[in-house]
Design a protein around this nucleic acid. Structure first.
Lengths: 216, 216
DNA sequence: ACCTGAACACCGTTCAAGT
DNA sequence: ACCTGAACACCGTTCAAGT
């Protein structure tokens, strides 16, 4: 049973055996290859040339679509923050609206789980490589969205009187700092905890901070 | 007034204009050059070849003293942790012994100050580059020393009844996570705070956690 | 408009050879 | 024992040239 010509062309293209001159959607293909390669080799080990090789294209072709290597990595980081925000949002939505402490715990647990699920991507997102200068404004927006999930959950708690009034931003950043620091310290093996216990131990470390946020 | 011959040789050596065959103390010279270069170009931008150039030696010579590039960077990170532990210890010693909350604050402020004073070195120390595998056991010891300062201060507080009993380790790691996360988030511009206000704002974020650690 | 080929100025690492 | 020179297999980036 012969394949339809259009499907055939698809396959040939994906195998990089195509003779067609244009790629079709090189930016997308490069992002996909980059995501796999970053996960496999780490953010440091990633090279533009290998990504181009995987896609089956001359390495110089990447520069038609991305200003440089960092721009491609920034696109990846942006996708990462979107995924992170979505996972945090989904984790919050799974908990009853009036259980605000549960919602905060769930959001922060999702943050830490993401970091450990995708260490190289998380490293890219939070490392010094991309956030140095004022480039990549869309990246900044994606970051804000992710911490917005946290802030919304916290505000709900303050309105219900579960948390003391005061700066929502301050409380959000205290929680985010603790969760982020915990994730980093686990990833770099400065906190030793079995993979299966990572979420549980986050709860333990979070406890005194949550207690301190409650009304006097 | 002619310089003493020995001093003259020193200068010639440091200027890399020497004709002497052996360097004298190449490992030390490489570490010093590396430290400057990491600070100047970031941990990513550092190259072994430039360090060798600065020292005035063939780049291959470095391999007589360091297994590879990472080993040289690990030596730097180790020095960094020693400095960090010393600064935290000095900060603690400056506060009265019975002001345990003050001591904790001072230790954590010293941690964050170090991170912001030497961002590239701090990134090297806490980044994924070195802590991946079980190499560099001396680095692990240096890390333990630094968080030991924190743990000692905290234990003092528990013995005085200023903090609730319970796992000293858990409380230490909660505090360290918050301070470390805060430092990282400030460095990568996810928390926006004026340089002059960094210490002050750490205090603000720390407040609810310290409150939660007090006896019920 | 989109991609290739070739070139430039670099890397980390290895190894025979020099002193 | 310690360092040099040359080589290898890579990089990121640029640019004229091809289709």
């Amino acid at each position: 049973m012969p394949t339809k010509p259009s499907a055939r062309r698809q396959v040939a293209r994906s195998r990089a055996r195509r003779r067609t001159y244009h790629h079709g959607d090189l930016p997308r293909a490069l992002r996909a290859a980059a995501k796999t390669l970053v996960a496999a080799r780490g953010a440091d080990g990633f090279t533009l040339r290998e990504a181009a090789r995987v896609v089956g294209v001359n390495h110089a072709a990447a520069y038609r679509h991305f200003a440089d290597k960092r721009a491609l990595l920034a696109a990846l980081a942006e996708e990462g923050y979107e995924t992170l925000a979505a996972r945090m949002g989904a984790a919050v939505a799974r908990i009853a609206e009036d259980d605000v402490v549960g919602r905060l715990r769930a959001a922060l647990a999702a943050y830490v789980r993401f970091a450990l699920d995708e260490p190289a991507l998380f490293g890219l997102m939070t490392g010094p490589r991309l956030n140095e200068d004022g480039r990549f404004p869309e990246l900044e927006r994606a970051i804000a969205d992710a911490s917005g999930v946290l802030e919304a959950a916290l505000r709900g708690g303050q309105e219900r009187g579960v948390f003391r009034r005061g700066s929502t931003t301050d409380a959000t950043l205290a929680l985010l700092s603790l969760a982020h620091g915990y994730a980093e310290l686990v990833l770099t093996r400065r906190i030793h905890v079995k993979p299966a216990r990572v979420g549980e131990y986050l709860g333990t470390l979070l406890e005194p901070l949550l207690r301190g946020l409650r009304p006097a």
